[in-house]
Deep mutational scan, measured.
Amino acid sequence: SELMNSSKLIRMLEEDGWRLVRVTGSAHHFKHPKKPGLVTVPHPKKDLPIGTVKSIQKSAGL
């Protein structure tokens, strides 16, 4: 199965306009000026399962 580095996923979010608002432990929480909701990324993780990545991307509207 495909894995993604959390840094790469965070870069994709930031390029889309998401900004880090809070860190709780290894959970990084992002908000967007125009899009609704809060997106949480486990970080640092070298090997996020593709299912997790897809669900984060979906929440972020990517």
Rank of each mutant, 00 (worst) to 15 (best):
G61T: 02
D47P: 06
P49N: 09
E2N: 09
T40Q: 08
N5Y: 06
P44N: 04
E2F: 07
H43C: 04
K54G: 05
V41H: 00
S26I: 13
K46E: 15
L38P: 04
K31Y: 08
G61S: 05
T24K: 10
Q57V: 14
K58W: 05
R22Q: 13
K31M: 13
V21Y: 12
K54V: 11
K34L: 12
G37E: 05
A27W: 12
R22W: 15
G51C: 12
G17E: 05
P33L: 08
T40E: 12
I50C: 12
K8S: 14
F30S: 01
M12S: 06
P33E: 09
M4W: 15
V39W: 01
P49W: 05
G25P: 14
S26W: 10
D47C: 12
L48K: 02
D16C: 05
G51D: 15
V23A: 12
P44C: 05
S1H: 12
G17K: 03
V21D: 07
V53I: 11
G37P: 03
D47Q: 09
K31L: 13
Q57P: 01
F30N: 00
M4F: 10
G51H: 13
H43D: 04
V53Y: 03
G61D: 07
V53N: 02
I10S: 02
S7E: 10
P49R: 06
K8F: 13
G25M: 12
N5A: 12
K35C: 04
L62N: 03
S59N: 11
I56Q: 02
E14Q: 09
D47Y: 14
H43S: 03
L62P: 03
S6F: 04
G37I: 03
E15L: 09
S59G: 08
W18M: 00
D47W: 11
L48R: 01
R22N: 11
T40K: 12
R22E: 15
R11K: 13
A27K: 10
L38Q: 09
K35W: 03
R19A: 10
K45W: 07
S59C: 10
A27C: 13
R22Y: 13
K46H: 09
I50T: 13
V23D: 07
A27E: 15
M12A: 08
S7G: 12
V21A: 09
A60F: 01
G51P: 07
V53E: 02
E14K: 09
T24I: 11
S55A: 15
D47M: 10
P33A: 09
I56Y: 01
G51F: 09
D16H: 07
S59K: 15
K54M: 06
V41R: 00
S7K: 09
T24C: 12
